[in-house]
Design a protein around this nucleic acid. Structure first.
Length: 814
RNA sequence: GCCGAGGUGGCGGAAUGGUAGACGCGGCGGACUUAAAAUCCGCUUCCCGCAAGGGAGUGUGGGUUCGAGUCCCUCCCUCGGCACCA
């Protein structure tokens, strides 16, 4: 009696042996082509759950497949270890963020090892360790010296009751403080920015990237490029030195329809352009706007608000005086923070005009327009009317003519604006990489010299439940000397956005131990760019976008030689549980440890792959996991018990070879397309077939052994432990994971016989097994001679007979 | 509102424009067992029929085609992203 399949035993055994033999240690010098297969590293939340397995097990299976195909594969793992939850744990449970994080890493590392992946643990990267964040700070300095980092005032979420800054995730519901439920407002703070907008145009170029279309679209929308014109409206207001206000518009052809002018309430000219009699009203409105929560301000369907300043600008095209209003629907951060309002052709402007009884003038006639007042704003193209010398032109011609005219007069020009804003990297938090800047009373802003890095996080900071950054009150940290003049100075107490850490970790994996630089240049040259990056689509416009920017900037600084980090991107779907994405913060995680303990890692790996297409994700349901487990047990029995050849049948052997090679072909194709679910069902079908052959014993023992070897090899990426054990048990040399991927024989995958489908008027009426070499004439003749078909013809006229080679005959009756 | 993905048995899902429902779960029946679990075998889209067979069927309604789950148009629903961007 052969022993039963005990997954835990064999999994433990092989994991230890693989580790002891370093069989997954990445070769530095290899003649094999490189393949960098990267999975987004996890945040150190504490537990690896089914959601992580869903991301990582299929990725590992694919990396293993590439490895067997002969690539030198780098498939590393690490931890995204800075972030707010660590700090919250410190406040609520009195554990230092460092201890909390390292404890979590220890657990997650154990869990990751239990998965049996090919991670080379010598390359592990942990972003919260000084050996790593030193280089995050180093990159900050590089960006600073390249003129890509600057300081400016920017609003933060502010809780007036707690007197503290809130991260977006601490603003809950309709804009309330997570801690005290007070309405959250905005407060301006000096913060650090990266000039990502300088790369807007480059970031729009996805032409060399093999990425999902929807991610490219999301990024394109995020950049939000608009072409149009900047138009100067003249200003003659006593006591105001500015002689013009510029606006951006995508529709310069509607400039004759301007009936009022809008500024954002935050616009710097507002108070100076307000006349005496409107002062009180305007001030009140501006204060009211500031008190609005973000949620209220952007709420859809909200009634328009605004006030008149009492002053006017002049339309450069028709010389008209246009009243200046302010309204909070004008965004201070887009375009110039000022808008020429054309109510006839813009829905929002029309709403505003109706509310405040401002005139509406149609200047673009929709097709078939007869001069009546438009009931809704018309944003399409048409014929220009009420537009002076431009009347009669099409709006497209008018667009060009008005731009030409503005440029001639010097009161405007064609231009492009982007929705994209600069990257705010400051966080008013402790658990992040400190921004390496010192403020000196004498020298001003002074970057910390490279030789003084890292700026270490103080370990003695106090964590008070205020939510204010502990660094601010840590005197040993704040007080320092100026690197330039040695006088007294203060350190910047903000830390960096964790997206900084994740913008370059994939470089560090190539040379994680380097102490003299963030990475070894030649190693990066050897491995990068990443050939395949897999992870969740939730990072479409944050992480993936920042990382692209980062690399483009490094390229321009001469630090790397490529300008796109991730050649190919694949997004797996999301695992939903109880109606929500599975995550620790949502409190709906399904632990993987129990499944690993009871059914084995190979079963869990297999099940997460079997659920459905990887890109679709889906609701977690463990009902089917026993199916995979049972199958692995059957495979065990199939391979480990002896085969006896009985009556060898040449026809059966031909079929056996055919199905073996067809399976190799299909499993290979499925893996290449990330169709792990159909890869497994293909292997199941094959193993079911093998069981039947085993019963009948119709193939020779040598043929059987060969097919079993192929089968185990095909199983190896998905169920690495079981495959290793079976490989060993069938007398093959260690290790299966160093074997080449099986090749199929094209000739053998071809069908000898096919089932010919016979239809009458497109409906299935008969099937017949025929040699695949059957000719057109033979097939049609055969179909017409079938009794079932004759019964349908029954004297009716034959309109036509269609034969689709090797598939179907359709008899069409008149 | 805009952009994207999706809608197929009781469930997860499978189907180069050519046999709809592979594979698995669950269910039903049987074998083994004193019994149960495990395992193995058979059946399992719905309706009519003892059967042979026939009819219906891939969110809705239309279209293209000899033939549509698959292609085109309309609408409905679910999920993800963006959302007063001038």
């Amino acid at each position: 009696m052969t022993p039963k399949y005990h997954p835990q035993e064999i999994e433990n055994k092989w994991q230890q042996k693989w580790a002891a033999d370093h069989i997954y240690k990445v070769e530095e010098h290899s003649k094999r082509p490189k393949f960098y297969a990267l999975t987004m590293f996890p945040y150190t939340s504490g537990d690896l759950h089914i959601g992580h397995w869903y991301a990582m097990a299929p990725a590992d299976t694919y990396a293993r497949f590439k490895r067997m195909q002969g690539y030198n594969v780098l498939h590393p793992m690490g931890f995204d270890a800075f972030g707010l939850p660590a700090e919250n744990a410190a406040i609520s449970r009195g554990i230092h963020p460092y201890d909390w994080t390292m404890k979590n890493i220890k657990n997650m590392r154990r869990q990751l090892r239990s998965m049996g992946a090919i991670y080379d643990w010598n390359r592990e990267v942990v972003t919260c360790l000084p050996g790593y964040y030193k280089w995050t700070q180093w990159f900050f300095l590089k960006f600073y010296h390249a003129g890509l980092a600057y300081r400016a005032k920017a609003p933060v979420n502010w809780c007036p009751r707690c007197q503290t800054v809130l991260a977006n995730e601490q603003v809950v519901g309709e804009g309330f403080c997570e801690r005290c439920s007070a309405p959250v407002t905005k407060k301006d703070l000096q913060q650090w920015f990266f000039r990502i907008t300088r790369y807007a145009e480059e970031l729009l170029d996805h032409s060399r990237l093999d990425w999902p279309e929807r991610i490219k679209i999301m990024q394109t929308n995020w950049v939000g490029k608009s072409e149009g014109a900047e138009i100067s409206f003249r200003l003659k207001h006593a006591g105001v030195e500015e002689k013009e206000i510029r606006v951006f518009t995508t529709r310069p052809d509607t400039v004759f329809g301007v009936t009022f002018f809008l500024l954002a309430p935050e616009h710097p000219l507002v108070s100076r352009l307000t006349t005496l009699e409107h002062k009180t009203e305007v001030t009140e409105y501006v204060v009211w706007c500031r008190r609005q929560t973000e949620y209220e301000r952007v709420a859809v369907g909200r009634e328009k608000t605004g006030v008149f300043l009492g002053s006017y600008v002049v339309n450069p095209m028709n010389g008209e005086n246009v009243p200046i209003w302010i309204s909070d629907y004008v965004l201070p951060t887009y375009g110039t923070g000022a808008v020429m309002a054309v109510p006839a052709h813009d829905e929002r402007d029309l709403e505003f005009a109706r509310k405040f009884k401002l005139p509406v003038r149609t200047v673009i006639a929709p097709p078939g327009w007869t001069g009546e007042e438009l009931t809704e704003a018309y944003g399409g193209s048409g014929t220009m009317v009420n537009s002076g010398e431009f009347s009669g032109l099409s709006s497209e011609q008018g667009y060009e003519a008005i731009c030409d005219s503005l440029e001639e007069k010097g009161s405007g020009r064609r231009t492009v604006v982007y929705r994209l804003r600069d990257w705010l990297i400051s966080r008013q938090r402790y658990w992040g990489a400190p921004i390496p800047i010192v403020y000196c009373d004498r020298c001003g802003i002074v970057p910390v010299p490279e030789k003084d890095l890292p700026v270490l996080l103080p370990s003695d900071a106090e964590f008070r439940p205020t939510g204010e950054s502990p660094l601010k009150y840590c005197e040993s940290f704040v007080n320092t000397t100026c690197p330039r003049c040695s006088g007294p100075a203060q350190r910047e107490t903000d830390t960096m956005d964790t997206f900084m850490c994740s913008s370059w970790y994939f470089l560090r994996y190539t040379s994680p131990k380097t102490r003299v630089a963030p990475f070894n240049h030649s190693k990066v040259k050897q491995w990068l760019p990443v050939d395949l990056y897999t992870g969740g689509a939730e990072h479409a416009v944050m992480h993936l976008f920042y990382a692209r920017f980062f690399i483009k900037a490094l390229k321009d600084m001469g630090l790397v030689e490529f300008d796109e980090p991730f050649t190919r991107l694949f997004n797996q779907g999301t695992i939903i549980y109880r109606g929500d994405k599975m995550s620790k913060s949502r409190g709906n995680v399904v632990a993987s440890d129990e499944y690993v303990a009871s059914l084995g890692a190979d079963a869990v790996r297999g099940y997460v792959m079997f659920i459905g297409p990887w890109e679709l994700g889906g609701e977690w349901n463990d009902r089917g996991i026993v199916g995979i487990s049972r199958w692995l047990n059957r495979v065990w029995g199939l391979v480990t018990t002896g085969y006896t050849s009985r009556v060898v049948n040449p026809g059966a052997e031909r079929e056996f070879l055919h199905l073996t090679h067809k399976t190799i072909r299909e499993v290979t194709a499925d893996l290449e397309k990330f169709r792990f679910n159909t890869m497994l069902s293909g292997l199941m079908e094959f193993s079911n077939y093998l069981s039947r052959v085993k019963e009948s014993g119709v193939v020779s023992s040598s043929l059987w052994r060969e097919a079993i070897a192929y089968f185990v090899l095909l199983l190896a990426p998905a169920a690495p432990h079981l495959a290793e054990e079976l490989w060993n048990k069938t007398g093959h040399p260690y290790s299966i994971h160093n074997q080449p991927w099986p090749e199929y024989d094209e000739e053998l995958t071809k069908e000898d016989e096919i089932t010919l489908i016979i239809q009458v008027n497109g409906k299935l009426r008969d099937k017949v097994l025929v040699p695949s070499s059957i000719s057109d004439m033979e097939a049609k003749g055969l179909a017409l001679s079938r009794d079932r078909v004759k019964a349908y013809i029954n004297g009716k006229k034959l309109a036509m007979v269609i034969y689709v080679p090797k598939r179907v005959v359709n008899v069409v009756l008149g």
